[in-house]
Design a protein around this nucleic acid. Structure first.
Lengths: 195, 195
DNA sequence: TTTTATTGATTGATGAATCAATCAAAATTA
DNA sequence: TAATTTTGATTGATTCATCAATCAATAAAA
């Protein structure tokens, strides 16, 4: 059975399985047994490649963040106007994959983990800062740097809040409604300034 | 030592100890041992009165929700104008006790638990609905029922989002800033409608 | 043969839950 | 009032299950 060059394959399979398990459970309370089984390997192999459960969970989180980052970069690049870039960032946050119930549940679980794990907190902070600075960069040409910071703060809070409500509610909140709410906020704020 | 009528005293001590432990840890990953010790009793007594860890945690959550509810009722009663009621509701959400880092961490932990426990989800849903209907009741005289729902939706999401950001950041977000942000949102929306 | 991939078996720790036993106040009876 | 019974309060010790982590052993490539 053992073929050479399996490491990257196994790593990816384990990370994907971990994400799925976390999403299913809605928490980080998942066993290595369950993850490994879902990835089609023994628990011992998961330890072989990741060293500990914590490390596997961190790798899982990094994978989630990397994906989000790539989508954001692509979206910004495609947009042509500053206002378009803002919309692109909002759209990415509520992208089908990101806003799936299980993904949202995983995010929430990581936020809790951040209370305990420095590295988890660091990663989440980096993400929050990047979203903020992306928003500010797109907003600044429209309303100046100071106001851009304010609007970015509000928009980011709105996005996070809609995530939490999604995790709780499941059904009642849909993607388009969430996008519309944040877009409306940004538009309103921009109008208030430029008037 | 055993005096009669200890039950309510112990129950309260255990619930308070549980809340403290959850706040300290930033998650529900607390042992009955730790809770009982902090309450000054043996773990066995905690089981005697609550039956299971889950039940103790649920009781803890109910206590938190009851407190929030009472504060909200009092705040609404004191306010005289509809706009004042809205502000009162916002102020309660960011009250010193509610917005304390450890309380926020506890809330977050309960949101995660809601993914697993039906009763936890039910309690959180009740809370969310009450906040929403309180906001709608106060907003309706100002802008009509339909728009009131929209604004309430946005304000509630903002509040939740600021909570999450508080849990992550700890330092950088202060109470007055959070209140100002939500107030600004409500004012802006109301102006946009009545204009 | 050396390296890489892989696992079954095992260990050690942790923690929820149970239970039999104790202790003292309250209630009852003599 | 004194003796006795009952009951609530309380815990130490124990059970049972779960799970992260380790390790020695095996099998296939290079």
């Amino acid at each position: 059975m053992p073929k050479i060059g399996m490491e990257p394959v196994r790593r990816k399979a384990l990370v994907d399985a971990a994400l799925k398990a976390i999403g299913d459970h809605g928490s980080l309370d998942v066993t290595m047994q369950e993850i490994a089984k879902s990835a089609g390997v023994s628990p011992a192999l998961a330890f072989h490649y990741f060293g500990s459960k914590d490390q596997l969970l961190l790798a899982t989180m990094r994978s989630l963040l990397r994906q989000l980052k790539e989508e954001a970069v692509a979206a910004i690049r495609q947009a042509e106007t500053p206002r378009g870039k803002v919309s692109a960032l909002i759209a990415v946050s509520f992208g089908a994959e990101q806003f799936a119930a299980s993904t949202v549940a995983a995010w929430l679980a990581f936020y809790v983990e951040a209370q305990r794990s420095d590295e988890t907190r660091r990663l989440l902070t980096v993400y929050a800062r990047r979203l903020h600075s992306n928003l500010v960069a797109a907003l600044s040409p429209l309303c100046g740097r100071v106001e851009a910071h304010h609007i970015a703060e509000g928009a980011a809070a709105l996005i996070d809040g809609l995530y939490i409500r999604r995790a709780l509610d499941a059904a009642r909140l849909d993607v388009s409604g969430a996008v519309a709410l944040v877009e409306d906020y940004v538009t309103l704020k921009l109008n208030a300034v430029t008037r």
